[in-house]
Structure formats: structure tokens, C-alpha cells
């Protein structure tokens, strides 16, 4: 597309973006600035996690140590929290997928009655402030004995994930040509089979993106878990809140690094799906 793009002298505002060299320079500066903005705050945390002693005005720690890492790994609470977080997140993701994919399909393909009202209802979890919702929910949990239970935490996490999953799968299903499914039906396949063997494989990238978001949202949830999960269900971010507020900064930094690692592994694994058309399929027409 760069071919033929030539700047007219005097068009002061746009000459820069029409000159390929200038454009490249601007792009590189922009990317560099962004990399600094995104990356360096995380790197300071890594520095802190190895800081034996780091007082103002030193730019880097004056003593290095791995004792904070030892402390974290020796602490059974940390290990427990990690195990808990990683047993909750997949369950939340699977359960959400089970109820959200049918709904997404229905919104995309079928004539759901009161569609407009329903779509609005599906937005309420996002429109009502979460804290207010969680506190109200905690009251309900006391009444139905879900407070401080595993399933109580799982159901709470699903509040956030359900909306995303429904929304993304709706868009995904809508991007698939309905004639494909009809052709399968005409060839004698049952509705379920037609869905499973024709629609589902095509929708998989979108579903994977949605599942990824759900998984991450579950790993990230701290507010609600703190309210309904204590004292027995302390997840990683809940523990992180504790560490921040009790001035164990290097420990908190270590924990941040450890908490980010699985997510970053996931990021690398999901790169394929997060780029190009997959994302479009997943998030495009919302």
C-alpha cells in the first residue's frame, strides 16, 4: 500500500504520514515508546523481587538476593493459593462454555423471543458495579449456604466470564455461513451432528479466544473472592492484596512475577489465536 503514496509539498499536517521514511521513523518511535510504557513497569517488579536492599536514591537494588523467592516457596499459603487458582479457573471456563455457547448460538442463529431485552439483561453484570453486586451476592450466599465454598467462588467468577463468552460466541457463530449447516442438514445430518461436525470446528478459534479470556478473568478476580471465599478459599490475587497491604514489597514482587508467569506462558501459547483473523472472528462484530 505504500507504493504511490507521495506527499504534496505544503500539506503540512499530512506530509509526515505520507513520506515512507518519515512514517517508518514515527512508527518505530511509537513502538519503542509503547514497549517502554508496557514493559518497564513490569521489569521494576522483577528488580524488586531480587532486591536484598533497595533504598532511595539508588536506581537499582544495592543488594541482590533470592531469599524472597525461597520465602515464597516455603510458604504453604502461596502454594495453596496457586493450586486453588489453577483448579478454579478451568472449572469456571468449562462451566461458562457449557451454558454460554448454546446461548451464543441461539442469539446468532435462532429467533430468540425478546432478543433485545435479553441482550440488555446480559449486559447487566457489566453495568452494575461489581463490588455492589458481590456484597449483595454474599448476603444471598449466606442464605443458600454457598459462602466460603468452592462452588460459591466458581459461580461468582462466572458472573464476569459469562457475558464475555456469550458475546464472543454470538459474534463467532454469526460469522459462519448458515448455508454450510443447512447443507449438512440436507445431507441428512441431525441438528446436533450438523453443529458438531460443521459449525463447531469453524467456531473453534472464537471459542478458544473466549475461553482464554474466561480463564484469565478467573485468575484475575480478587474482589468477589475475598468476600465470599474467605477464610478457606484464598486465590492468588486475594493473597496478593494481602501482601501489598502488609508491606512485604519484595515478597509481593516475587508473587507478582510468579503470578504473571503462567499468564505469560498462556500468552505465548495463545499468540496464534490472538492475531489476525481469529481475533476478528472472536471479537469483531460484537
Amino acid at each position: 500500500m505504500a507504493a504511490g503514496a507521495r506527499a504534496l509539498p505544503g500539506v503540512s499536517l499530512t506530509w509526515a504520514i505520507d513520506d515512507p521514511r518519515m512514517r517508518r521513523l514515527i512508527l518505530r518511535l511509537f513502538v519503542a515508546g509503547l514497549a517502554v510504557f508496557i514493559g518497564i513497569p513490569l521489569l521494576t517488579l522483577v528488580l524488586w523481587s531480587f532486591a536484598g536492599e533497595w533504598f532511595w536514591p539508588n536506581v537499582i537494588p544495592t543488594q541482590w538476593t533470592i531469599r524472597w523467592y525461597e520465602q515464597v516457596f516455603e510458604n504453604p499459603r502461596v502454594v495453596n493459593a496457586m493450586v486453588l487458582s489453577f483448579t478454579i479457573a478451568p472449572v469456571v471456563t468449562v462451566l461458562t462454555a457449557l451454558i454460554a455457547i448454546p446461548a451464543g448460538y441461539a442469539f446468532a442463529r435462532l429467533n430468540v423471543p425478546f432478543r433485545r431485552v435479553l441482550l440488555l439483561l446480559f449486559l447487566i453484570p457489566n453495568a452494575f458495579p461489581r463490588i455492589g453486586l458481590y456484597v449483595s451476592l454474599a448476603v444471598l450466599y449466606y442464605q443458600i449456604n454457598l459462602i466460603d465454598t468452592y462452588w460459591g467462588v466458581v459461580f461468582l467468577h462466572m458472573i464476569g466470564t459469562l457475558v464475555y463468552m456469550t458475546w464472543i460466541t454470538t459474534a463467532t457463530f454469526r460469522s459462519i455461513d448458515p448455508h454450510l449447516e443447512e447443507a449438512a442438514r440436507d445431507a441428512g445430518a441431525s441438528p446436533l451432528r450438523a453443529f458438531w461436525s460443521v459449525v463447531f470446528p469453524l467456531a473453534l478459534p472464537g471459542i478458544i479466544v473466549a475461553s482464554l479470556f474466561s480463564f484469565l478473568a478467573s485468575l484475575d478476580e480478587a474482589q468477589g473472592t475475598l468476600i465470599v471465599g474467605t477464610p478457606h478459599f484464598i486465590t492468588m490475587p486475594v493473597l496478593m492484596y494481602t501482601l501489598i497491604s502488609s508491606f512485604e514489597r519484595p515478597v509481593a514482587a516475587v508473587f507478582s512475577v510468579l503470578l504473571s508467569l503462567p499468564s505469560l506462558v498462556l500468552l505465548v501459547a495463545a499468540q496464534r489465536y490472538l492475531r489476525s483473523e481469529y481475533v476478528a472472528a472472536g471479537l469483531g462484530r460484537v
Binding site: L98, I99, L110, F128, S136
Partner: peptide, 24 residues
């Protein structure tokens, strides 16, 4: 069919979102 497919989500949202919202 559409209603049936949406129903599980709707049921979930009713218990875990709508009732608490009304309470609030």
C-alpha cells in the same frame, strides 16, 4: 429452541446477578 438454549444462562444470571441487583 432459542429460548431453550438461552435458558441455562438466564437461570444462572437470575440467581447470581438479577436477584442480588434487585436486593441492592
Amino acid at each position: 429452541a432459542g429460548l431453550a438454549l438461552v435458558a441455562p444462562s438466564l437461570l444462572y444470571l437470575t440467581v447470581f446477578v438479577f436477584i442480588p441487583v434487585v436486593k441492592a
